[in-house]
Nucleic acid binder design. Structure first.
Lengths: 381, 381
DNA sequence: ACCTTTAGTCCATAATCTGCACATAATCCT
DNA sequence: AGGATTATGTGCAGATTATGGACTAAAGGT
């Protein structure tokens, strides 16, 4: 609740540009007349705003709309994929990734670099990322795209652009954004994967995205907006208490969800998720038990999460996606039994369709979200 | 994320009126020049906006400011307690309550009617409330106050103005607001008690208010705004899982916080909180054990809540306030031990200073919040 | 062909904020 | 005391942006 600034003529126009662009984004291709009706602005004003957005390459006209109605057909305006683009970045434990996405949400470019970043030096890793950015940017520019902004996903807690603690990288209090050449937002992997689900997923605008990785995280999206809490640390599902006197967790607590559903607990000695899936498919007792335990624990932790966060639905992603067939029924049973009387029906439990790319894609989605929320500021209108 | 409307000249002015009023509210008495600096508007514009707010009785001038600086002293503008007022209402299990609060947050009037509303008929109870409103309104008008809006706190879940389920009243799916004579917002007791803490408490703008009553609820305030989740059901701390295989809870789950820290569990046969406090003060073993168990359980549930919600601090209210001396140390110890490595320090655990009035006061606070957020719409400027 | 309907543009008008000038009212300095 | 300095608050011309009605354009119906 920062003291907000007054509205001036230029910010009124800035806001109206955003309103029009948002309407185009949300309600698909629309004519100027349709936009006027939906925004409450006059046709004149909308025409002027659309002209500015066309000029900036944010929208394009897509030929006449012949809708069978009588009267002069309108010209549909839609988001343009030809000029404005967003750069999504990710530093993770065993790879670096980048992607370029245009305003129509088409993924135009995707690059991954395997790397071993455990206990690494931030400067060195970010140098590699910088190289990757350079390469990807050059290629995008070759395709006529203008990269308007970037966002970076990291596996750790982020507070106001500062990477506080990434246990698996071994990084602490790193100003990652400052080490790149371009202005870049930074956020937690789980939050950005949630945005990935929002922008490249099923179309739902209210859900809890559960990201199974080495740790377990979650990102809550309510009405199309990520909920971050007071310090940006919300959504740490991995350390929700499942069994108060359970096994010790690396966080200092006991019986956290991560102890049962973290990657190490699930793999139980196997060396990859693929191996685990094979073992499960083959009916391996130990693997099945580990999954059943994880599913139960997930159900318990999600029960608490549903009571506290009230998500519209629950989307399982990361390593939980390939394991979904084995996790689903225990988790759903626990959730259904425990939520019981309290609400109509428990939230739907579904699997994410974005694979390992969720976080990079979400990073690009966040940039697109910003462009649409403030085209005047971002595009210099 | 409803399709937002465009900004027109009148909404620009409406917004600027709100910006000025918010600045006056948050930064105490300010001169026009000070307002101009903080809002980014020119002195001319601020003068014009302040004139409108003076006219409407929302602010008043409070004499010259002699601040020791040289130059002409400004005239301080502050919220006015003379005209605009808000009505807070509450229906609870054993009483009805109403209060009238002016814009300076002075409680001008407070009335409570004892009643036994368990398993009651909504229409009958709301008839009594209507009488109470009539009485209180008349008295407020006698004092020259104009009641601008009302809000009602109820002990149950509320979804978009509809009271879904109030187990202790025995009410289900009641359109409470429609049964009163005046336009009235309706919300959950815990959410409104949280707003009570925001408007009449310590001044913090980020906290989780934990409301101990017959059940246990919570309201999360982030940056001065209540977080409600997707359907308005967020903050059900009472059913966060503490022990997955603990005793059965009325919600259908097992080992929920409410089983350990609900009023029934704490009283353990005693017939009032006062009696329990006496027993605790006298060193009664059973009472002390019940409190220790409740404190531990609270610590566990709050650990999960902190990980998921990331509150700035935790405020204990309702029956937890008088019991705070006995709950504090077990809860704080559990929280401290379990949060361990994950964050700098666990959030502060404090006691609310608002007594049983928290929810009615918060209801009035919600109305004041609306007036300040949109003076033009509410006051007809 | 002609009427009706809807889309999009043009232009004069209205609402609001800005920027500068100016009156006002203190303190500071001599 | 009296002028210089400094800051507040208001008036007025000008700038920016949206509005509303008139007008042109392009279709379908009769």
């Amino acid at each position: 609740m920062v003291a907000s600034r007054g509205v001036r003529h230029d910010s009124m126009r800035a806001r109206n540009l955003a309103v029009v662009l948002q309407a185009v984004h949300r309600q698909g291709p629309l004519t100027r007349a349709g936009l006027a009706e939906r925004t409450g602005l006059t046709k004149t004003t909308v025409s002027s705003l659309v002209a500015a957005l066309l000029e900036a390459g944010a929208v394009s006209e897509s030929g006449a709309v012949r809708d069978g109605e009588r009267g002069r057909p309108g010209v549909a305006v839609e988001l343009s994929g030809h000029r404005v683009a967003a750069l999504g970045l990710e530093v993770n434990i065993d790879y670096l990734a980048a992607c370029v996405v245009d305003l129509t949400r088409s993924v135009r470019l995707r690059r991954t670099r395997p790397a071993d970043n455990r206990g690494s030096d931030p400067a060195g890793v970010l140098q590699l990322l910088r190289d990757l950015v350079k390469e990807v940017t050059a290629e995008a520019e070759g395709a006529g795209l203008r990269i308007i902004g970037a966002a970076l996903a990291v596996p750790g807690t982020v507070e106001g652009g500062l990477l506080r603690n990434a246990p698996h990288l071994g990084w602490r209090d790193v100003r990652v954004a400052d080490l790149l050449d371009l202005p870049c937002a930074v956020d937690n992997e789980a939050n950005l994967a949630a945005l990935g689900e929002l922008w490249f997923g099923s179309g739902a605008t209210d859900f809890l995205y559960v990201s199974g990785e080495i740790g377990v995280g979650a990102g809550l999206v309510v009405d199309g907006t990520v909920f971050r809490g007071t310090y940006g640390l919300a959504g740490e599902l991995g350390h929700v208490v499942v069994t108060p006197d359970g096994p010790a967790c690396r966080c200092g607590g006991r019986g956290c969800l991560e102890v049962y559903a973290g990657q190490d607990a699930l793999l139980g000695g196997l060396d990859s998720v693929a191996a685990l899936v094979n073992a499960l498919a083959a009916g391996d007792r130990r693997a099945l038990d580990a999954c059943a335990r994880a599913g139960d624990a997930l159900g318990v932790a999600l029960t608490s999460a549903v009571h506290l966060l009230d998500p519209g639905r629950i989307v399982l992603g990361g390593i939980f996606a390939p394991l979904f067939p084995w996790l689903e029924s225990p988790a759903r049973d626990v959730l259904g039994a425990r939520l019981g009387q309290m609400r109509g029906a428990p939230p739907a439990l579904v699997v994410s369709s974005n694979g390992a790319d969720a976080a990079v894609l979400g990073a690009a989605g966040m940039v697109i979200q910003r462009i649409i929320a403030d085209p005047a500021g971002v595009l210099g209108l």
